[in-house]
């Protein structure tokens, strides 16, 4: 039983028409010219249990700045500088034809874990769609980060599923920005790990 006065308001699906309000043009670009840090692109597709495109998913990305600082009052560490030119929030609706999404952002810095030590650089992704009654939450790590080997969240995930959380650096000839590929899959042996945040 809940020890609270009130029940949480239940979640409902975002439905097929959320783009009327929830993903304006350009909201998948988190950087401005003043933003500090290495530019990266994160791209991929959202796929259903038959590995068909999910053509109407909403992805919300949340991350720390290049120093590992979150643009948020709960991150009150005075010893970590805050980049005023970076909010850390992006939204992208998947492409109706392909189920693809992309974000242009910066490589986040490491952030501390409450049990001690630093976490490997990662970004948080929240996924919602028609046919999803609740949001799902995952994290994107980067395959060129040595710190992945000691990240306590990654280590809490069974070996066999850990790779689903790690974006793969790919060479895109027409892009000067390092690009990481991260597909999000529902159902099946290679389903993306979703967290109970």
């Amino acid at each position: 039983m809940s020890d609270h006065d009130r029940h949480q308001t239940p979640s409902q699906t975002v439905g097929p028409y959320f783009t009327m309000r929830l993903s304006a043009e350009g909201e998948n670009v988190l950087t401005s010219p003043e933003t500090i840090g290495q530019r990266i692109r994160i791209e991929g597709r959202v796929l259903d249990g038959d590995r068909k495109r999910i053509e109407d998913a909403l992805l919300e990305l949340w991350q720390a700045d290049s120093a590992g600082r979150y643009h948020h009052p709960n991150d009150d560490r005075n010893d970590v500088p805050e980049d005023p030119a970076f909010n850390g929030f992006g939204r992208c609706a998947t492409d109706f034809q392909t189920g693809a999404y992309s974000f242009l952002t910066i490589r986040p810095g490491p952030v501390p874990h409450p049990d001690g030590g630093m976490q490997a650089p990662h970004v948080s992704v929240t996924i919602q769609a028609r046919g999803m009654l609740n949001p799902t939450f995952t994290r994107i790590y980067f395959d060129d980060e040595a710190a992945n080997a000691s990240d306590s969240v990654l280590l809490s995930v069974p070996d066999s599923r850990r790779a689903t959380l790690i974006a793969e650096r790919v060479d895109i000839t027409d892009s000067s920005v390092p690009t990481f590929r991260f597909d999000i899959r529902y159902q099946g042996d290679d389903e993306t790990v979703f967290f109970d945040v």
């Binding site: 909010n87 990662h122 769609a129 969240v153």
Partner: peptide
Amino acid sequence: YRSTAKRAPSHGLIAIVQTLTETTGPGPAW
């Protein structure tokens, strides 16, 4: 609700200790 059939996770959710990643968010800045 038929569209949930292929869009619902089939593995259980994995528990996570809330870190700054989860206890912060875009709300205040937006």
